[in-house]
């Protein structure tokens, strides 16, 4: 069952500048959906449209099975969000910032201390938000999103500004929320490694187009497809001739010679053959499998 679904979502800032093309997100209930893409890919624009922060131009958005256009207020009662930098009133304390939202969401006042404790700000409740570090502000922004126990959390790069320890803590917090309370989490990031550690489902957006959507397992298969064997030798042209004789398609690149992925025993055999043919092998390693390579692979496969 889907918690959030979009179809044919398009957006343009001007006639010449289309930022989203036919985005069709499908976020399953109780999943952690990693919305992955480089900066400027259209992640934040998509998330802002999902929250009604921008006027939708084309397409449809359905959350909890209801149309956002006609049920915006009912939907937002069950949604917590953090878009770009946290929205905090710097002249108010951490507790006062949450008290504002507590009044709107009509949750018990005790919940303020609870969420502050949960994000590690229990000792800073009476400190003004303006005196917070970037990481503390981010934590308070997450606390604000969690305050009313939303069924869906929409977080735009929530670990921005956090130190490595903070990143681990927030990741653990989100995982626990998802596991213990069944909260569906839609989290955007430009870091594949970050999403891999957190998400159960992934959507990859690039230049406003959704290039991939599926489970993390399916992404790993794509990633495997993007991986190459990189070969560094003393004489690449000689090595290319040896490889061609062995029926292996290889080509030169800035990373050395790139070969299609192959099982480890084949790599060992290939190394032996090169050495026997008088090619000095400096290094053999894996190349690709990073976000950029997956993008290139996905773009290549869509173009084909």
């Amino acid at each position: 069952m889907l918690c959030l679904e979009t179809s044919n979502l398009c957006h343009r800032y001007s006639a010449a500048e289309a930022v989203l093309h036919d985005i069709a997100l499908a976020v399953p209930q109780a999943s952690i959906y990693g919305f992955l893409g480089p900066n400027g890919a259209g992640k934040t624009t998509t998330l802002r449209l999902l929250l009604g922060l921008m006027r939708k131009q084309r397409g449809s958005i359905s959350i909890f099975g209801r149309n956002l256009d006609t049920h915006r207020v009912e939907i937002l009662r069950q949604v917590g969000s953090l878009i770009e930098s946290p929205s905090l009133y710097e002249h108010l304390t951490a507790a006062e910032n949450l008290a504002l939202l507590q009044r709107i969401h009509r949750v018990p006042a005790a919940r303020i201390a609870e969420v502050l404790e949960r994000v590690g700000l229990g000792g800073a409740r009476d400190k003004r938000a303006g005196a917070f570090s970037l990481g503390m502000k981010q934590r308070l922004g997450i606390a604000a999103a969690l305050l009313h126990r939303p069924a869906l959390l929409i977080l735009d790069e929530p670990t921005n500004g956090l130190d490595p320890n903070g990143i681990i803590e927030i990741r653990a917090l989100l995982t626990a929320l998802n596991r213990e309370e069944g909260t569906t989490i839609l989290v955007s990031s430009h870091l594949l490694a970050e999403v891999e550690r957190l998400a159960s489902h992934v959507g990859i957006v690039h230049r406003g187009r959704l290039l991939f959507q599926g489970t993390l397992e399916a992404l790993r298969r794509e990633r495997h497809g993007a991986a190459r064997v990189a070969l560094h030798t003393a004489d690449d042209s000689h090595a290319l001739r040896v490889l061609a004789d062995a029926g292996i398609a290889a080509h030169g690149s800035e990373h050395g010679l790139l070969l299609p992925p192959m099982p480890p025993p084949h790599i060992a055999a290939l190394n032996r053959r090169l050495v026997e043919q008088g090619v000095e092998v400096y290094a053999i390693g894996a190349e690709g499998g990073d976000l950029e390579s997956i993008f290139m692979n996905l773009i290549g496969s869509r173009a084909a």
Binding site: R48, L51, G52, L53, V73, E74, L76, R77, V79, S81, I83, E84, S85, S87, L88, Y89, E90, H91, L101, I104, H105, A144
Partner: peptide, 17 residues
Amino acid sequence: IETRNNAWKQVHALPLH
């Protein structure tokens, strides 16, 4: 207060008409 604290987006994401 809203503009300076970049808070309009939070206000509009609240369940309010």
